[in-house]
Design a protein around this nucleic acid. Structure first.
Length: 566
RNA sequence: GAGCCGGUAGCUCAGCCGGUAGAGCAGCGGACUUUUAAUCCGCUGGUCGUGGGUUCGAUCCCCACCCGGCUCACCA
C-alpha cells in the first residue's frame, strides 16, 4: 500500500507511519485523537498549504490514514475500537421477517439487536442513514441526534464503510416504507482500517476478488451464496451416504507412494524420519485397504493435491469424494451416483423441471424416490438431471463419432492421422483415448455415463468377464466436464502387480500409473472383496449445481501466485 | 509451457495520430431530522504494473520482466 512517502517535517514520525497509528498530528499538538475533528483538520491544513508528491504533510489524506485517525478519535471518546463480546443479536434476515409499522412514538415497534458491517453511510445533518450487512442480509439503520447519547452521536459521525457495529433499536418503517432500525444504542465493534470497495456496479476484477476474498464475500452476493451451497452439497452427501450405511474415514494425506491416479504429486519431506513423502493425489489405495479390513461401505471426503496446471476446471488442491462398496460393481456405482446428485439437487432446491412424472426406478442404492423432473440451469444451457442418466458404452460412442471399431488397430491409426495425432510409438489404447478425447468428449452434453474403457488405461479396474480388452469403468460427463469416475475394483493381486509394473508406450512417466506399490499388493493378497468404487470431484459438482463457470469461484481460496513486491 | 487480451485514483473505468492524465462512486470540509445510486457547494486524491530503449518529449511506440484473465497443452 501507499503511505510510503517521505515527510519533510523533521522530528516527527508521521511520514513513515503505519496504519497502527504512529502518525502524529502537528509537532506542537498533543495526541491527534483528543482534538475535536474540526479543529485538528483545520490546524493541519493551515500548516501544510503546499503539498508535493515527495514532501507530503502527515495530515490525513491517504484513505487508510483517515481511517487510522478516526480510530484514534474513537479511542478519544473512551471507546474500544476493537470491540467486545456482543450477545443476543438476531440475524438480519430474521429481523426482516418481523412485522413493522411506520415509526410512531405512541405505538413503538419491536426492539431488536443486530450486529454487522456498515455498507452504506449517508449523512443528513441531524439524521444518519446507514445500511448494516450480515451474512444473512442487509437492513437500514437510522440514527437521530436526539435518540442517542452525545458520545454515540459523535461515534456515528466517525463511522466508515466497512466498520463493524452493534445496534439496539426499534424496528419500524420510514416514510418511504423502508424497513429500518431506529438506533437507540450504538456499540462500536471493530474498525476497518482499509477502505472497502465502493462501486454500485460491484467488484469486477477477478484478481482483486480472489486476493480479497473476504471483500468479495461481502460485496458479491453470489460468492457467499456459493459458499453456503457448497457446504450444503457436502452435508447432503454425508447424510445421504450415512443413510445408506457408509462409514466416513480419514486416511493419510502424506503418502510414501503417490498412487491411485496418474498425476504429478507435490513432494515434501519428514525431518525426524528423514524420508521423502508425497501429498496424496487420490484416496483410493488406503480406502481399499480398509475394504480388506472389513469396512464394507466406506468413504472419504477430502483434499487431494496434484502438481499440475491451473485452469477454470483445475486447482492444484481440490476436494474428492471416494467411496467403496464391498460386493458391488460399477453398475452399483452408477445408481449411487444418480442418487447422490439428485439428493444434492433437491437439497439445494434448484430444480426447475415439472413434477408429477411416473417413478422410473428405485433400488437399494437410491435413497430418493425418482419421482419428478430435475432440470437445472448451467450457463446459457439447461442440464436435465432427471434419473436415470443416459448410459453409453465407450466402444459404441467411439464407433459412432470416430467411425471405426476401437479395436481395429489399422483403422484407429489412420483415424489418428486424420486428426493430426502422430501414432508413432504410442500404444493402441493410448491412441484410442486421444481420439476419444478429441472427437467424442465434446459431443457429450450429458449427463451420460460412459462405460467400458480400454483395459490398459485402467490399471486398478477389473476386466470385463466377457471381454478382457475392456475394463468395467465409467465416467460421468456433463457438458464435456468429467464429474465422476468409477469402476469395478480390481481385487486380483497378481493382475494388480502386473498392471502396476506396466508403463504404457506413449505416456510420459509422470502420467503413468506405473508405480509399484508392494504394500498395496500385499493387502490385496490377503483378500479384498469384489467391490465397486466411485470418485466424484466435489468442486466440479458444486460448479454444476451452483451454475459457476470457474473452479476458482467454488473454492474460497484458490491458489494464486504471490503478489510479490508491490 | 504456448498463443491472445489486460494491469491508469481506494473501487469501476475513459484517455484519439506521442505533448507527463480524466469521470462516476468512495474520501475530506460545509448545508440538510425520513434518505434509497440522496441532493447541493467546495476540495483532496496518480511513480499510468516494473525496468530498459527510441524521442526534444512516452500512459501511448519498441524490448524484457512481473501479475492476472481467456484459449490451448496438461489433467487416465
Amino acid at each position: 500500500m501507499g503511505r510510503t512517502r517521505v515527510t519533510d517535517c523533521s522530528g516527527k514520525n508521521g511520514g513513515v507511519s503505519s496504519a497502527s497509528g504512529s502518525r502524529s498530528s502537528m509537532s506542537a499538538a498533543p495526541a491527534a485523537g483528543v482534538l475535536p475533528p474540526k479543529a485538528r483538520r483545520k490546524t493541519n491544513r493551515s500548516h501544510h498549504p503546499h503539498r508535493t508528491y515527495t514532501t507530503v504533510a502527515d495530515e490525513p489524506q491517504d484513505l487508510a490514514e483517515v481511517r487510522a485517525d478516526k480510530l484514534r478519535q474513537i479511542e478519544a471518546l473512551g471507546l474500544d475500537p476493537w470491540g467486545h463480546r456482543f450477545d443476543g443479536t438476531t440475524p438480519i434476515s430474521r429481523i426482516r421477517q418481523l412485522t413493522a409499522n411506520p415509526f410512531d412514538d405512541a405505538n413503538p415497534g419491536p426492539k431488536v439487536r443486530a450486529a454487522g458491517r456498515v455498507v452504506r453511510y449517508r449523512t443528513g445533518g441531524k439524521l444518519l442513514f446507514l445500511e448494516l450487512w450480515d451474512q444473512t442480509g442487509r437492513v437500514q439503520l437510522m440514527i437521530r441526534v436526539n435518540k442517542v447519547t452525545e458520545t454515540e452521536w459523535k461515534l456515528a459521525q466517525l463511522l466508515d464503510l466497512g466498520d463493524l457495529v452493534g445496534v439496539d433499536g426499534e424496528l419500524g418503517k420510514t416514510r418511504t416504507g423502508e424497513l429500518t432500525i431506529q438506533v437507540e444504542k450504538l456499540t462500536f465493534l471493530a474498525k476497518s482500517l482499509e477502505p472497502h470497495p465502493k462501486d454500485v456496479f460491484g467488484m469486477g476484477d477477478m484478481e482483486y476478488r480472489l486476493r480479497h476474498r473476504y471483500l468479495d464475500m461481502i460485496y458479491t452476493p453470489d460468492t457467499l451464496r456459493r459458499a453456503h451451497q457448497r457446504v450444503q452439497v457436502i452435508r447432503t452427501i454425508r447424510t445421504h451416504l450415512d443413510k445408506l450405511g457408509y462409514m466416513e474415514v480419514e486416511t493419510p494425506t502424506l503418502h510414501n507412494i503417490a498412487g491411485g491416479a496418474a498425476a504429478r504429486p507435490f513432494e515434501t519431506h519428514h525431518n525426524a524420519l528423514d524420508i521423502g513423502l508425497y501429498l496424496r493425489i487420490a484416496l483410493e489405495l488406503p480406502l481399499k485397504r480398509l475394504l480388506v479390513g472389513g469396512l464394507e461401505k466406506v468413504y472419504e471426503l477430502g483434499r487431494v493435491f496434484r502438481n499440475e496446471g491451473i485452469s477454470p476446471r483445475h486447482n492444484p488442491e481440490f476436494t474428492m469424494l471416494e467411496l467403496y462398496q464391498a460386493y458391488g460393481n460399477y453398475e452399483t456405482m452408477m445408481d449411487l451416483t444418480e442418487g447422490l446428485i439428485v439428493a444434492c439437487v433437491d437439497a439445494l432446491d434448484i430444480a426447475t423441471g415439472e413434477g408429477g412424472a411416473e417413478p422410473v426406478g428405485h433400488n437399494e442404492s437410491k435413497a430418493v424416490l425418482i419421482d419428478r423432473k430435475r432440470e437445472i440451469p448451467f450457463g446459457d444451457k439447461t442440464v436435465d438431471l432427471t434419473p436415470p442418466f443416459q448410459r453409453a458404452s465407450y466402444g459404441e460412442l467411439f464407433r459412432q463419432h470416430v467411425g471405426c471399431d476401437m479395436f481395429d488397430e489399422n483403422a484407429v491409426r489412420s483415424a489418428a492421422r486424420v486428426e493430426d495425432i502422430n501414432p508413432e510409438g504410442k500404444a493402441h489404447d493410448v491412441l484410442v483415448q486421444e481420439l476419444f478425447e478429441d472427437i467424442v468428449e465434446e459431443k457429450l452434453v450429458g449427463p451420460v455415463f460412459v462405460y467400458d474403457y480400454p483395459a490398459s488405461l485402467c490399471p486398478l479396474t477389473k476386466r470385463k468377464r466377457t471381454d478382457p480388452r475392456v475394463a468395467e469403468r465409467f465416467e460421468l460427463y456433463v457438458h464435456g466436464m468429467e464429474l465422476a469416475n468409477a469402476y469395478t475394483e480390481l481385487n486380483d493381486p497378481a493382475t494388480q502387480a502386473e498392471t502396476f509394473s506396466k508403463q504404457l508406450a506413449g505416456l510420459p512417466a509422470d502420467e503413468s500409473m506405473a508405480k509399484m506399490d508392494h504394500d498395496f499388493v500385499r493387502a490385496l493378497r490377503h483378500g479384498m472383496p469384489p467391490a465397486g468404487g466411485l470418485g466424484i470431484g466435489i468442486d466440479r459438482l458444486v460448479m454444476l449445481l451452483t451454475n459457476t463457470q470457474t473452479i476458482r469461484d467454488v473454492i474460497l481460496f484458490p491458489l494464486l501466485r504471490p503478489e510479490g513486491a508491490k
